[in-house]
Design a protein around this nucleic acid. Structure first.
Length: 475
RNA sequence: GGCGCCGUACCCAAGUGGUAAGGGAGAGGUCUGCAAAACCUUUAUACAUCGGUUCGAUUCCGAUCGGCGCCUCCA
């Protein structure tokens, strides 16, 4: 097992990762609220989490990855003035909440699959765990951390000493929320709702019985309840986007530890934003790009995955079409190199028999991974390996495929796109190639070049190799 | 108003107290009838600005300018 260092938001420094149970990792990643499509900024975070899990597995850990699906309780604001996002979406589209949730859940996993993101071991829906949430809230209440006001059960942050530690919040800066419309029921602006029974919006189907009345859970409680259910009352790593630090995760910590009386999560990891036009991508600002829209523009989802691998997860990454083009070129080049290696050697070397040079690259690659998931440095090693002519081809192939277990670029399955061309076109192309070969033989280069031009105009690029002419689709 | 982050070549992006990884793009070359592909070489004399600490700073400290994020739903 390899030592792994990660940046812990709690403490804001890089720490040696020590799992609760040797050899295994309990990992909870905040999942999507399924009221709309995920945009590529959201997807960056899931690519990060996937890379993290792959890295831990590479170093010998057994990872139990849990992800929630938020299909209720996530309000458009954190007091009772907000409307539930799911209900709002359902109302606007004239569909049931169930239909909306299912539709966008499917869309989400279709995206993650196309990005070669491995499915979490456990995927849990909030609506399937209402009872777990109620039980947890009862514990919080029994421990004296709650109060009931205006029909809702609130968490009283003043009762929790360490409130705000994750984000470095200071409770005495209450006026910080001056811009926000305050919920008059709250004793403290940072208090948050555990259970709603009252809201000005029509709740219809999404209501459950509870000790506090018929209603629905606050947003934060689902992550506490479900993570504890599947990972235990204390577990190793909890990850999400940086936007969750100050509110969502801060509140999760407060309620979780208020319920159990002990520490909940050991390491907090947060992915920075994808920014576009000097701002984060968001559903409201109009800068909303889905994976589908990238595909429509001719990109492979893995181009985007490669793009994300180019920046460190704790740094904002600037998205631009030019940047995506660059990632696409680089990825295609990588695929070409792997294909060339595959053509060169019958089969890759066994990892246990790698030569010294290859082992050096492997070691440097692993060092980068183990140093807070430094993917840009890891990628540099990939390229250094591929450029080094002193590494035997079978070693290089074995190692690049080994590295790809973490990169997730699907290099093992890499193949030339040309295989998808229909037989008729194929026959035509081959006949053109034969005509050109004949012209070349007769030293009629004008005709030969004309044929080549005609093909390139149709997106077919010829390559004269020593063993004969081959072609490829040209983009 | 409070808290935090960032500013590295044409673009994306690492990194270090002792003068800068990698990728894309560009340039030159080898090969080729010519291309393409491949390969080779090449592309940052002040790493935003101004001070300070230091033998020495891009890397540490302070200020300034610019950008971003969170504090409000948000990955």
């Amino acid at each position: 097992m390899h030592d792994v260092y990660i940046f812990n938001t709690m403490g804001r420094n890089i720490q040696l990762f020590k799992p609760l149970h040797e050899g295994s990792v309990g990992f909870y990643g905040c999942g999507p609220t399924v009221y709309n499509y995920a945009h590529i900024g959201n997807l960056r975070t899931y690519i990060f989490e996937d890379t993290l899990v792959r890295m831990l597995k590479r170093f010998g850990y057994e990872v139990t990855h849990v992800m929630n699906i938020t299909d209720v309780g996530h309000l458009s604001s954190d007091d009772d003035t907000g409307e539930d996002k799911m209900l709002k979406s359902a109302r606007e589209r004239g569909q049931s909440v169930l239909e909306i949730a299912q539709f966008y859940t499917d869309a989400f996993f279709r995206d993650t699959e196309r990005l070669n993101i491995q499915q979490p071991k456990i995927i849990c829906k909030a609506t399937d765990h209402i009872q777990d949430m109620i039980e947890l809230i009862k514990r919080i209440e029994a421990n004296g951390y709650t109060y009931f006001a205006g029909g809702n059960l609130y968490f009283d942050v003043s009762k929790f000493d360490r409130y705000g530690e994750l984000a470095g919040l200071q409770l005495d800066q209450l006026k910080a929320g001056a811009r926000v419309e305050l919920d008059p029921n709250k004793r403290n602006p940072f208090d948050f709702v555990l259970w709603f029974t009252k809201s000005k919006f029509d709740k219809q189907a999404l209501l459950w019985e509870s000790p506090w009345g018929i209603g629905y859970p606050g947003w934060h409680i689902e992550c506490s309840a479900m993570s504890m259910k599947y990972l235990g009352e204390q577990f190793d790593i909890h990850a999400g986007g940086v936007d969750h630090i100050a509110v969502h995760h801060t509140n999760e910590i407060a309620q979780s530890e208020a319920a159990t009386g002990h520490k909940w999560v050991n390491y907090w990891m947060h992915a920075e934003f994808l920014v576009i036009d000097k701002g984060k991508m968001s559903k409201s600002s109009g800068s909303f790009l889905t994976l589908e829209s990238l595909i429509d523009r001719g990109y492979d989802p893995l181009d985007y995955r490669y793009f994300c691998l180019g920046g460190h997860y704790r740094s904002q990454l600037s998205f631009s079409w030019e940047g995506l083009d660059q990632a696409k070129s680089a990825r295609l080049s990588l695929v070409d190199k792997v294909l060339a290696l595959k053509e060169k050697v019958a089969k890759p070397a066994a990892l246990s028999e790698l030569g010294e040079k290859a082992l050096q690259y492997r070691s440097a690659f692993d060092e980068a991974l183990a140093d807070d998931l430094a993917m840009p440095r890891a990628m540099a090693q990939v390229w250094n390996l591929l450029k080094d002519n002193d590494v035997p081809a079978q070693d290089a192939l074995a190692l690049i495929l080994d590295m790809d277990e973490v990169l997730g670029l699907d290099l093992a399955k890499a193949q030339r796109k040309e295989v998808s061309v229909d037989p008729e076109t194929l026959q035509w192309i081959n006949s053109q190639i034969e005509r050109r070969a004949a012209a070349k033989k007769a030293r009629d280069f004008a005709t030969a070049d004309a044929i080549r031009s005609e093909l390139i105009a149709k997106g077919i690029q010829l390559e004269d190799r020593p063993e004969g002419t081959v072609w490829r689709l040209h983009e």
